[in-house]
Amino acid sequence: MSELGADPTRLYVRYAVAGDVAAVAEAIRVEQTIEFPADLAPEWIQQEVVGRVESQDEDGVVISFAPGVYAGGLGQVLNVLWGNVSLFEGVRVVQVQLPAAEHLGLRGPRFGGAGMRELLGAPSRPLLATALKPMGSSSDELAATAAVLAEAGIDLIKDDHSLGDQPWSTWRERVARCTETVREANERAGTAARYLPSLNVPAHEVFERAHEAKELGAGGLLVLPGISGFDTMRALADDDDLGLPIMSHPSMLGSHVVNPAQGLDHGILLGLVNRLAGADMAVFPNAGGRFGFSVEQCAQIRDECAAERAGLASALPTPGGGMTLERVPEILDLFGQDVVLLIGGALHRGDLRANATALREAVETH
């Protein structure tokens, strides 16, 4: 990836623009900073605060932002990257060059790819994940399913993102039962599965529930940053007293990526932004599943999850969305070994234990 600029203190963003590039570039550099008539601002603000157009061509513009502009944490970084400009038609973020780590001030993933491998005792093979389904099942039914999956060698057993605090499986009851049965299954089978409850709970309860999940024995957390907020996920990742791996889920994020002329490139949002917000694993729909992501878009996410960025650990791409056992070789051809294979409902078509065991065998022999 070519560099957008040479100043390590500045945040550089390339925006693809449909329309009058010069006019849109001028609007972006002002709207993303002072949101005020530039000619009325003091000279020093015009020179040092307003975004700087670094280059432009018929396809778009590169604008850079000074450290004082993006200072203040992840929320402000995202606000500068895609704040008011998100209301413009025909503008898309296609490349980001971060400032040096000491200027950015974000820790990123606590564990990253290498850390997750160490936690799970899997130094080289792909990791395996599945979701507890379907909504409407009781906590005991979900816990029994989790036990089977843990014994079969599935590494990460997460709540489906739709599991919140429903009457047939309340949050606390489900987390207590699933952590208990996964722990017992690990002891019986000599496995190291981790259960990740969903934090799809009211905002004022997120941190209390996260710590309660840890006390109950949860091995990680599933966070929905499109609903709870990217900075909430960042705060969970940065919490040293919590210290749990985080898997992000893309619920409500589709509108940012699916329009090719608007929003953020798939790799930027689901790869880079997830990493900035502390996700160790990033769930997204793989090509050929229930959703419309292409191979090229999935490759963008893969590459952004792994790209070397000073001060940020990698994240593991976690493609899902209608994947099957038969597609494992194809998925590994695209993502390589540094991937979390997320296969959910398809494991239940037939014998769950046999299918989960076959999945584990497939990645060990690939």
Rank of each mutant, 00 (worst) to 15 (best):
F291N: 09
S198H: 10
G278A: 09
G350Q: 07
A315P: 11
H161P: 01
P134C: 04
G321S: 07
G271D: 13
V93T: 10
R302W: 02
L11G: 05
P134Q: 03
Y12H: 13
A203C: 00
R360P: 12
V223G: 05
G289V: 07
G344K: 01
A218W: 10
C305W: 06
N286H: 12
G311E: 07
A150P: 05
L40S: 09
A213R: 10
N200A: 13
D140H: 09
H204Q: 15
Y12F: 15
Q47I: 00
P245M: 07
E187P: 00
G190N: 04
L78Y: 04
N84F: 06
G220Q: 09
R353S: 12
A362L: 15
N286I: 02
Q97N: 11
A150N: 03
V273W: 02
E89D: 11
V283T: 12
L78M: 14
G72C: 03
Y15N: 07
P245I: 09
G153P: 12
M247H: 07
L236G: 09
P134T: 08
G322R: 09
T191V: 03
R188T: 10
G108E: 02
D7R: 11
A23D: 09
R234P: 00
H204A: 14
A66Q: 13
E326G: 14
L325K: 07
D303A: 15
R107D: 06
V339S: 02
V17Q: 05
V339L: 08
M323L: 15
E304T: 04
R309C: 05
D333T: 12
V148T: 13
G60K: 09
G267W: 10
P319I: 10
L332M: 15
A71W: 01
Q166F: 08
A287F: 15
D57L: 06
G113P: 03
E208H: 11
V49W: 15
V49D: 04
N200R: 11
N286V: 01
L242N: 09
G73C: 02
P317N: 13
S139I: 00
